[in-house]
């Protein structure tokens, strides 16, 4: 559903020619969003909690072997498959194109995760634990999720809000590049660019028009807000 009542449509461009797969974004996201620590047995049993992950693909055999990386996070689809299946409207579409998750409403049916083709929704099977004093790091801007709640990438909505509040205090418009999610902010090769897709002059809009653009599972018609730029050597120059 592309009904927008806001001037913004947040989107992201991930340039796979820049991405080195280093994982800085993963830890930055975990720090920013109060994502609990996943112990070894939790991960072994498929209960890994992360809002962004790096997919690694091997290609070919020795000596003609390559490895490719793909950062995978919530694609904030405009026609999101997770939204219509939620019986309690916990998964909803925000006027700014964000795919929101209301923790208070979530009753833990996990239908949304089941329906997400990108497998980016993670479920809290247990209450999170932080041995003292590790809990002092937790950010007051982000809810700590409890047992039985689904969670996923929010495009750092707390940063978007903070940015907008700051701009309105100063009585000006939000500048391009002023709001950055934690992943984009930390990415050393600047592979992740975030911004307003409604503004044709924003950096993200310009990059989204690149001939290298593609979106994941375009054929499913989910209309993701995350646009990838092809990378990887001889096959795809410039």
């Amino acid at each position: 559903m592309n009904i927008e009542t806001s001037e913004f449509h947040w989107g992201m461009v991930i340039d796979l020619d820049r991405c080195t797969g280093c994982g800085a974004c993963v830890t930055a996201c975990q720090a920013e969003n109060n994502i609990p620590i996943s112990e070894q047995d939790g991960i072994a049993n498929g209960r890994n909690l992360h809002w962004i992950r790096i997919e690694r693909y091997w290609e070919g055999e020795f000596p003609h072997v390559r490895a490719r990386f793909l950062p995978m996070l919530c694609q904030h689809c405009d026609d999101a498959p997770c939204e219509p299946v939620c019986p309690v409207y916990a998964s909803y579409h925000n006027p700014e194109g964000l795919n929101g998750q209301v923790y208070n409403r979530c009753v833990g049916t996990r239908y949304c995760a089941n329906n997400c083709p990108y497998a980016v929704r993670v479920f809290n099977f247990f209450n999170p634990k932080w041995p003292k004093p590790l809990e002092q790091q937790l950010s007051p801007d982000v809810t700590v999720r409890s047992r039985g709640v689904m969670e996923k990438c929010s495009f750092c909505i707390q940063r978007i809000r903070r940015g907008k509040e700051q701009a309105s205090l100063e009585n000006r418009k939000l500048l391009d590049g002023e709001v950055m999610p934690a992943c984009a902010q930390t990415c050393p090769p600047q592979a992740i660019i975030f911004g307003d897709l409604n503004d044709p002059d924003s950096r993200v809009s310009k990059l989204a028009r690149s001939p290298r653009r593609f979106r994941l599972f375009e054929d499913l018609g989910t209309e993701p807000s995350v646009i990838y730029l092809k990378g990887g050597g001889h096959d795809h120059p410039g």
């Binding site: 280093c22 994982g23 800085a24 993963v26 830890t27 930055a28 975990q30 720090a31 590790l134 790091q137 902010q185 930390t186 990415c187 050393p188 600047q190």
Partner: peptide, 13 residues
């Protein structure tokens, strides 16, 4: 120049 790796992020812990 404003960038940081995963190890730097984890300094808090």
């Amino acid at each position: 120049q404003g960038k940081l790796c995963a190890r730097g992020q984890a300094m808090l812990q």
